[in-house]
């Protein structure tokens, strides 16, 4: 299974056929999700209309963490099996994850101002997400810091695995410390503590964000493969 996709040409072909479908479903989900989030769901009885920020903030946070987990998994695969596509997947995913993390921090502070009365607090959840952004930036810089791309990929893979300690810290920071940020509402033993009218748009947006990530990942990986090929051709021509 793992090595069936090791051939870049085969991967590129499969990705090319998948791409329009994934992109189409992403667009439809965004339209439906945003309709539910902005029009077909009630305003919060306490927060009023600002609660709608949640439908961007929370899915972006899920995707940002899932993306780091994905990078860590790809890094492990690359270090253990030297899978050629794993490096490319990791380095294509990192800027996307950084983007999602910036969205989380920006929407979070926009949401924090009306509800908490402040743009930013040095709370465990917020600080650990800020650290996640730094880890993404470190990963991106390290990938591009070497003349030999293979070295950058390997160094970044080790960093991604070391930085993975931060993911459980983000997840459980609201349980371990008394924070201003509210605890998880969905992944609870007694079921989600959120009304179905708000849960529907949230889940729709969650799937839309994830599929958007997949779409962009496929685009970026194909671009990366093409760039590598172009570079090899240029080097051959120069010899």
């Amino acid at each position: 299974m793992l090595h069936r996709f090791a051939n870049p040409a085969r991967f590129s072909r499969i990705a090319a056929t998948m791409l329009p479908w994934v992109a189409g479903v992403t667009a439809i989900l965004f339209i439906v999700g945003l309709y539910f989030a902005l029009f077909a769901s009630p305003a919060d009885y306490q927060q009023g209309e600002t609660v709608r920020i949640m439908y961007v903030h929370v899915p972006a946070a899920w995707t940002a963490m899932a993306c780091y987990t994905f990078i860590a998994a790809m890094s492990a695969i690359s270090l253990i099996w030297k899978h050629p596509l794993a490096d490319i997947a990791a380095r294509s995913a990192a800027p996307l994850g950084a983007g999602f993390t910036i969205i989380v921090l920006a929407t979070g502070s926009l949401w924090g101002k009306p509800t908490w009365g402040t743009w930013w607090v040095w709370d465990a959840r917020l600080t650990s997400v800020l650290v996640l952004l730094f880890l993404y930036l470190g990963h991106i810089s390290l990938t591009h810091a070497f003349d030999n791309p293979a070295r950058g990929a390997k160094a970044a893979a080790i960093l991604a695995l070391v930085g993975f300690v931060n993911i459980p810290i983000i997840k459980f920071s609201v349980d371990w410390w008394n924070t201003l940020h509210q605890p998880a509402s969905l992944t609870r033993l007694d079921g989600p503590s959120i009304d179905p009218s708000m849960l529907t748009p949230l889940l729709l947006m969650g799937v839309a964000f994830t599929l958007y990530f997949v779409t962009m990942l496929l685009v970026r990986m194909r671009a990366d493969l093409a760039a590598t090929k172009a570079r090899a051709l240029r080097l051959n021509a120069a010899e």
Binding site: F134, L142, N166
Partner: peptide
Amino acid sequence: RRSGVLISLLVLP
């Protein structure tokens, strides 16, 4: 390249 700045970005977080 620029390993000094890079170390701070990796290590300080």
